[in-house]
Simulated scan of single mutants.
Amino acid sequence: MDETPLPEVTEQFARTLTPEPDGIVAEMDERADREGFPTVGPAVGAWLRLLARLTDAERVFEFGSGYGYSAYWMAPALPADGELVLTEVDADELDAAREYFRRGGYADRAVFEHGDAVDVVDRYDGPFDVVLVDNEKERYTEAFEAVREKVPVGGVVAADNAVEAAPLDFADVRALLAGESVEASDASRGVAAYLKRVRDDPDFETGLLPLGEGVAVSVRVA
């Protein structure tokens, strides 16, 4: 589409404020560029770390972790006895995440779960102070429902790709949120349904972080 929902200048400026990435993050960024792998990028990664710090996070859960990029950004914000649960259906990517965490010195606080994240989260008791939703777009609402009761007051649920993604059409998402009838992809419908769900939930307040591909940040208030 011709419209650019998130201006590149915002992303570029935000990167000037991010912590200096260590060698592992730099290696992950190079891999993403080389393979065309969709990570959240350093600007969003730094914000995820900040969210973990602001919530004094001790436990984090990710719906979809790839090779551990976003999780690695959050790891320094957790205490050594904290728990960061990574989930991934691709065993090779999960093995890569495990190796990055080992080399970076954060394996002591990471749990690597191979399988469907929605199934995995059912095996865990709460609370989770920060949750990142980054699995299949059409299953975002399913992920939220699976983890909602495990998020304490003051906890955060962040959903990536709230504005942009390869199968996502921003105009369609806006139209669906406005109640219009449009022919939209499953991904667009999934993200729109998620945004409506968290927007209308009286126990959460939601705002948009306009970085990367857009992150919907929902804070539990009741």
Rank of each mutant, 00 (worst) to 15 (best):
Y194K: 08
V60A: 05
E35C: 01
R220S: 09
L168K: 00
R103Y: 14
V153Q: 05
A110E: 04
A171E: 15
A193S: 14
G36S: 06
R98L: 10
R102G: 14
F112R: 03
D169H: 10
N135L: 12
D33M: 08
A110W: 00
N135R: 07
V163T: 08
E138I: 12
G105P: 04
A52V: 08
A171N: 12
A96R: 13
P7A: 14
A32G: 08
V182I: 09
A146Y: 11
L209I: 13
L168S: 01
G115R: 13
L86Q: 05
L168H: 02
T55E: 02
V191A: 14
D129I: 10
A107M: 09
R199T: 15
A107S: 10
V118A: 14
H114L: 15
E58N: 10
A77N: 11
W47D: 05
V191R: 00
E11F: 15
Y67W: 07
V182S: 09
P19I: 06
G190V: 08
L94R: 11
D186L: 12
D160R: 08
M1P: 15
T39G: 03
E30D: 13
D200V: 14
F144P: 01
R199F: 10
A187Q: 00
A43C: 09
A46R: 03
G126K: 03
L86S: 00
V131R: 05
G66C: 05
E3D: 15
E142G: 04
D134K: 04
R34M: 03
E58W: 06
G155K: 01
V121Y: 02
L211S: 03
A46L: 05
V191E: 02
D186S: 11
P76T: 13
T39W: 02
L208K: 09
S185R: 06
D116E: 12
V217T: 11
R199Y: 15
R31D: 06
R220C: 05
F128T: 06
V217A: 14
V147Y: 05
V151R: 01
Y106N: 00
L17G: 13
V173E: 00
V44K: 04
V120F: 01
Y67T: 04
E3W: 14
K196D: 15
G179A: 06
Y100M: 02
E213A: 13
F13R: 13
G64Y: 04
E149T: 13
V130S: 00
A52N: 05
A216W: 00
Y69I: 10
L54N: 09
A32W: 04
D122I: 03
E58C: 13
A216M: 13
Y67N: 01
V133E: 01
V151H: 02
